[in-house]
Design a protein around this nucleic acid. Structure first.
Lengths: 179, 179
DNA sequence: ATCATTAGTGGAAAAAGTCAACTATCCTTG
DNA sequence: CAAGGATAGTTGACTTTTTCCACTAATGAT
């Protein structure tokens, strides 16, 4: 996934030809000096930047497992809500129900979760996390924790708390404002 | 694998999150009552929820235009950095350069941006926003503004400011911690 | 029993992301 | 100034994700 360049980090310096534009094309990730313009006025953009990095970091750290996106959060939600139905799960993750089915297929194949026919409603498959799934969840949560810590280390505990609270308030506006 | 559970996992099982708001997932007003469990302990999850809604809302609002993803931010970056090269643009958006080419193709087809051969370096295509592109950007930024306002309305001006600052600090940790 | 509704499933189609060539141009160095 | 390496742009093939839609099975209401 890295650059297909065999030679790297060479950063060939060219003699800075007094460019009229304030744009320097060179520079690695984060080192670019590109203006954000109006984009920088929106929190959504900042949100996206940070979240993008977090999810990418998590994906990289768990790439060896070959987990499909959404699998981790689905497993975590099953753990938090034993016996949840696949449709409720899909609603929660915000994906199509067919995606939830595929994820649960993977989860069963991995032995981390299992379907059990509901006794009261035989249409439903009640979902449960297995012991192996519990163990894996611990490991995955550890990765998330580590990923976040690297970024949240800049914030004081009070600031972390405040950040969570603000985000919750924003989300509450979303969840409550729909019909 | 690695079922060595003799050591106590200190990363798991902390039931208390002490958040100001009860950690409940969405499901709409009075809808499903799904617990988030450990997921609720992480700001990354809250970040994702909110950001997910924002981008989805923006996509819905601009669906009529049939804009490919990344087109808007690319156009905004061209506006903010007149004469930027396609490669610098791709680096900024975090995508492959071939994607940037495709986006600029669309942009030219729509008449919102144009390529001009750089006079100093004839390999490069300097990118500029057209008058029509400016107008479209205004409209698109208005959509973003409206999308955000609906969510940020819950926050006081001071809180918005603080939120941006916290996110910036987090992003600075990301950008500075590499290379 | 009939009909509308919901849970679950599979598969096709569209979109998005990834990779590898290949050309043209530039820069460096001998 | 010629040679070799590096950079900008472009194209096309390919893989992975998302999204949508049809279809079955079970439930509930009339």
């Amino acid at each position: 996934m890295s650059k297909s360049n065999g030679t790297k980090a060479k950063t060939g310096r060219r003699p800075a030809k007094a460019a009229a534009a304030p744009v320097r094309a060179d520079g690695g990730p984060g080192g670019s000096q590109v203006s954000l313009g109006r984009l920088g006025d929106f929190v959504g953009f900042r949100l996206r930047r940070v979240q993008n990095h977090l999810s990418r970091h998590f994906a990289t750290a768990t790439a060896a497992e070959g987990l499909r996106s959404g699998l981790f959060s689905s497993l975590a939600l099953i753990e938090a809500n034993p016996g949840i139905s696949q449709i409720a799960l899909s609603r929660e993750v915000g994906q199509d129900k067919s995606v939830a089915v595929a994820i649960v297929d993977d989860l069963e194949k991995l032995g981390w979760a299992e379907r059990r026919r509901s006794t009261t409603d035989r249409r439903r498959h009640a979902l449960y996390v297995t012991a192996a799934g519990q163990a894996k969840l611990d490991a995955l949560f550890a990765v998330v924790d580590e990923t976040e810590s690297a970024v949240l280390h800049q914030l004081s505990p009070g600031e972390k708390q405040l950040l969570s609270e603000l985000l919750d308030r924003m989300y509450a506006a979303i969840a409550g404002g729909e019909s």
